Amino acid sequence: MAWMNPSSPQQHRMQDMLISYFWSGDVIRGRCVSDIVLSGTVDVPVPPTRLLADWQREISSHMILEPGDVEVMPLARARARWPDYTRCVQAVSDWTCAPGLPDVLASSDVALMACRGARYHHDGGQYGGAAFCNLFLSEDRGLDLHFPSTGHRIPLTRGTVVIFDTGQPHGVIQRGSSGFNAAEFAPDRDCIQIFLTWELPIEDPHVGHALKVDFDVAPSTSLQLDSEQVLLNGTPVIVCPDSGRWCRAD
């Protein structure tokens, strides 16, 4: 397995050759992977005690949330116990207006997620046609959302909101750590983060402009592919779950 380090002096050139191929209708379309990460903090209330207890029961009784895992939580049930849900969504919607994304949340799929940290990964193999917008709902657990290829490191607190390209490697790691270490997310540690995530369509003109995404790059390669994937300098790549570095898929 050959390592490919995007933090080298050739980072910019290599980033330019990082291409996400995604389904657009019934054809594969290629686009650059944006290194822009938009982040901020919005004012959202503490989830009610009843809801927090329900989340705890769900995680302890119905899920196997190992260190580094990211899993879906039941959103419909949460909304029934969450009088401030609409307020949370509105806070994020208002925040997205600043980078020029008016009303984009209203037409985007949303899910409720839980993670016990997160191993480094990218989501371009399944969500190449989207950018993610995440609103973190838990208190500060001493964790950061880390993008190793770009250097962005965002402390996670209640109200942290982030928009980023799904093809960009990312992980949730211990603050002060240089990578993901499962031992830092032991079951006796309070290190679970709950967050809402929206899939913003990357082909939406506002989303593409905000992230400065170039489309229809390497069109000849697009014609040869039959699945969503990320290529670095024309080579299929995966992400090392511990370091976040790219490595050849073979």
Rank of each mutant, 00 (worst) to 15 (best):
Trp23His: 12
Arg29Val: 14
Ile28Tyr: 00
Ile19Asp: 00
Arg29Pro: 01
Tyr21Glu: 05
Val44Ala: 04
Ser24Trp: 05
Arg50Lys: 14
Met17Ile: 01
Gly30Tyr: 01
Pro6Ser: 07
Val37Asp: 06
Ser39Gly: 08
Ser7Ile: 06
Arg29Ser: 13
Ile28Trp: 00
Arg31Gly: 04
Pro6Lys: 00
Ser7Met: 09
Cys32Asn: 09
Asp35Gly: 08
Val44Asp: 01
Pro45Lys: 04
Pro6His: 05
Phe22Glu: 07
Thr41Pro: 01
Asp35Thr: 14
Val46Asn: 12
Val33Trp: 00
Ser39Tyr: 08
Cys32Gly: 11
Thr41Ala: 10
Ser39Pro: 00
Gly40Asp: 07
Ser20Gly: 13
Arg31Glu: 13
Ser8Gly: 14
Arg13His: 15
Ser7Val: 10
Met14Pro: 01
Phe22Leu: 05
Arg29Asp: 08
Gln11Lys: 13
Ile36His: 11
Asp35Pro: 13
Arg31Asn: 09
Val42Gln: 05
Asp16Asn: 12
Thr41Asn: 11
Pro48Thr: 04
Thr41Arg: 10
Ser39Val: 07
Ile28Ala: 02
Leu38Gly: 07
Leu18Val: 08
Gln10Ser: 13
Arg13Val: 12
Pro47Gln: 01
Val46Ala: 12
Val46Gln: 14
Thr41Tyr: 11
Arg50Trp: 09
Gly40Tyr: 02
Asp16Gln: 15
Ser24Leu: 12
Val33Gly: 03
Ser8Ile: 03
Val37Cys: 07
Val33Cys: 10
Val44Glu: 03
Val46Trp: 10
Gly40Asn: 02
Gly25Lys: 01
Ser39Thr: 15
Gly25Gln: 05
Ser34His: 08
Arg13Tyr: 13
Ile28Arg: 01
Val27Ser: 12
Ile19Asn: 05
Pro6Trp: 01
Gln11Met: 08
Asp26Thr: 14
Met17Arg: 12
Gly40Pro: 02
Val33Tyr: 04
Gly30Met: 01
Arg29Glu: 13
Ile36Gln: 07
Ile19Pro: 00
Met17Gln: 15
Ile36Val: 15
Met17Tyr: 09
Gln15Tyr: 07
Arg50Ile: 13
Ile19Leu: 14
Asp16His: 11
Ser39Arg: 14
Gly30Lys: 00
Met14Ile: 11
Met14Gln: 13
Asp43Arg: 09
Arg29Gly: 00
Leu51Gly: 02
Ser7His: 11
Pro47Ile: 08
Met17Phe: 10
Val42Leu: 07
Gly40Glu: 03
Gln11Arg: 15
Asp16Ala: 14
Pro45Leu: 05
Ser24Val: 09
Val33Leu: 03
Gln15Cys: 05
Val42His: 04
Ser7Thr: 15
Trp23Leu: 10
Arg31Leu: 06
